[in-house]
C-alpha cells in the first residue's frame, strides 16, 4: 500500500515518456485503433449476415476461431513477420517490433465480439417489423439503416463494450514485446521487483477498464430507442409483478 502511494505520488510517475499520462495515451491509442480497425472489418460482414441470413456459418466460425487464438502467441508469431516486412514495405522496423504485432493481435481479438453483436443485433429485430417495412415500400438499404440498425444499436454497443474491455485488458501483454502502454508498469514492475510500480499498473488498467465500461453502458442505455426502452421497462415491471 505504501509503495503504491509512493508510485502515484512520485513526480517521475507523471512526466515524460515513461509517465502515466503518456502510457495512458499509448494504451488508449492502441485500444481505439484496434477496435476501429476491427469494426471496419466486422461491421459490414456482420450487417450482411444479419440482414440476409447468409454466410451465418462463416460468421460463427470466424468468431469462434478468433476467440480461441491466444493473443500472446499471436504477437510472438507476428513479430518475425512484421520485422521481416519492414524493409519490403519500407516502414520503420521499430514499428514492426513495438506496434504492429500487438496492434494486429488486438484487432483479431476485437473482431469476434463486434461481429457477433452486429449480426445477432440485426437478426434479433422482429421479423414482423422488417416485413411491414418492406410492405411499406422501403428499400433493403432503408430497412437496414432506418429500422434494423437503430433497433440493433444497444446490442451493437454491447459488442463494442466487450471488444474494448478485452483489448484494454489484453494490450498489457504487449509490453513483453517492447510495447508501450500501461502494461509497461506491470512487466517492468515484475522484472524489477518494484511492487509499487506493478500494483500501480494493475490499478491503472483496472480503473481504465471499469471507467470505459461504465461510459459505454451509459451510452448503451442512451442509444436504446425510446420505444424499446418503454417496452422493456413494461416487461420488467410485469415480470416483477408476476413474481411471488
Amino acid at each position: 500500500m505504501e509503495q503504491l502511494l509512493e508510485f502515484f505520488t512520485d513526480p517521475a510517475s507523471w512526466s515524460g515518456d515513461t509517465g502515466i499520462p503518456n502510457r495512458l495515451i499509448e494504451h488508449l491509442a492502441i485500444a481505439f485503433l484496434a477496435v476501429l480497425t476491427a469494426s471496419a472489418i466486422a461491421l459490414p460482414l456482420g450487417f450482411y449476415i444479419g440482414h440476409t441470413g447468409r454466410l451465418q456459418m462463416l460468421g460463427i466460425n470466424i468468431a469462434n476461431i478468433g476467440r480461441a487464438v491466444p493473443s500472446y502467441a499471436m504477437m510472438v508469431m507476428l513479430l518475425p513477420v512484421m520485422l521481416g516486412l519492414a524493409p519490403v514495405l519500407g516502414y520503420d522496423p521499430r514499428l514492426g517490433l513495438r506496434f504492429l504485432p500487438i496492434f494486429l493481435a488486438m484487432v483479431l481479438l476485437a473482431i469476434p465480439p463486434i461481429l457477433v453483436a452486429a449480426y445477432a443485433g440485426i437478426q434479433e429485430v422482429d421479423r414482423d417489423l422488417t416485413e411491414s417495412s418492406r410492405g411499406m415500400g422501403l428499400t433493403e438499404r432503408q430497412i437496414l439503416t432506418g429500422v434494423e440498425l437503430p433497433l440493433a444499436l444497444p446490442v451493437l454497443v454491447g459488442g463494442f463494450r466487450v471488444a474494448l474491455l478485452q483489448v484494454i485488458a489484453t494490450a498489457t501483454i504487449g509490453a513483453y514485446l517492447a510495447g508501450g502502454g500501461l502494461g509497461r508498469y506491470i512487466i517492468d514492475g515484475i522484472a524489477r521487483r518494484d511492487d509499487g510500480m506493478l500494483y500501480g499498473g494493475v490499478v491503472l488498467v483496472a480503473v481504465l477498464a471499469i471507467g470505459t465500461d461504465v461510459l459505454l453502458s451509459w451510452l448503451q442505455r442512451r442509444l436504446t430507442p425510446r420505444g424499446v426502452r418503454i417496452a422493456t421497462e413494461l416487461e420488467t415491471e410485469r415480470a416483477g409483478a408476476a413474481a411471488p
Partner: peptide, 11 residues
C-alpha cells in the same frame, strides 16, 4: 528470441 529477432530485424 524476441531480443534476437529485434536485432536481426534492425529494430
Amino acid at each position: 528470441a524476441e531480443m534476437a529477432g529485434a536485432l536481426e530485424g534492425n529494430a
